[in-house]
Amino acid sequence: MAWPTDTHCTSRRSAMVSSYVDLTEEQQKMLDDAALSIVTIKRDTQSKLAASGAAFDDGGFGSKCDICGCTSFMGDALKCANDSCRHSCSDHVFT
């Protein structure tokens, strides 16, 4: 499976952001909760595969922040724990 290029992701994200602008606070929280679930599942999968000796390369899915370029979502909260980022989990997952 080929992963999309950064250019594709950026243009896709730009289109997505415009549709997210009108989200209510409750809707944004639901989106961030869903994104955090995705990150948690990804981390669990990586951990289980590593423990079994299998490699896991997801092509960087859910890592880079689309807002500031932070290279990896950090922490277990709705906002990235990287002090230079602090953007929402959904800004990392939906890139």
Rank of each mutant, 00 (worst) to 15 (best):
H92D: 02
R13H: 08
G53C: 10
V21I: 13
M16C: 11
E25F: 00
I67L: 11
A77Q: 12
C89L: 01
Q28T: 11
G69P: 08
S90Y: 08
Q27L: 04
A55M: 10
S14M: 11
A2D: 08
C85H: 06
I38K: 09
D44E: 14
H87E: 07
L31A: 11
F94K: 09
V21E: 14
D91E: 13
I41A: 14
C89N: 03
E25H: 00
A15F: 04
R86V: 05
D33G: 00
A51K: 12
A77M: 03
V39Q: 07
C70M: 06
L49W: 11
C89E: 01
H87R: 15
K29N: 08
R12I: 09
C68L: 12
D33T: 10
L31F: 04
S11K: 05
C65L: 12
L31S: 04
G60W: 10
G75V: 06
V21F: 00
Y20V: 04
A55T: 15
H8E: 15
L31Q: 12
S63W: 05
Q27C: 02
F94N: 14
C68K: 15
S72T: 09
K48W: 03
T10A: 09
T40A: 14
D83H: 02
K48A: 15
K29E: 13
T24F: 00
K29V: 11
A50W: 04
W3F: 15
T95Q: 10
S11W: 07
F56R: 01
A34I: 06
S90M: 06
L31W: 05
A15G: 13
F94H: 13
E26H: 04
T40M: 03
D57W: 07
A77D: 06
S84G: 04
D32V: 07
S14H: 06
K64G: 00
Q27H: 02
D22A: 12
K64Y: 05
M16G: 07
T10S: 09
D6C: 02
S18V: 09
A77H: 04
S47N: 13
S37G: 15
A81Y: 02
A77V: 02
D83A: 13
S84A: 13
T71F: 03
M1Y: 07
H87N: 13
T45V: 13
D32W: 07
S52E: 13
L36E: 01
K48T: 11
L78P: 00
S14Y: 02
M16E: 15
R43N: 12
C9S: 05
F94C: 07
D66N: 12
D33Q: 14
L31Y: 05
T10R: 14
V39D: 01
L31K: 12
A50H: 09
W3L: 12
T24D: 06
C89M: 08
D83L: 11
S18F: 01
F61L: 10
R12Y: 12
V21H: 03
R86S: 07
V17T: 06
V93F: 04
Q46A: 14
M1Q: 08
T40S: 15
S88I: 00
L36K: 06
R12Q: 10
N82K: 14
K79C: 05
T24C: 03
C70P: 02
S37H: 03
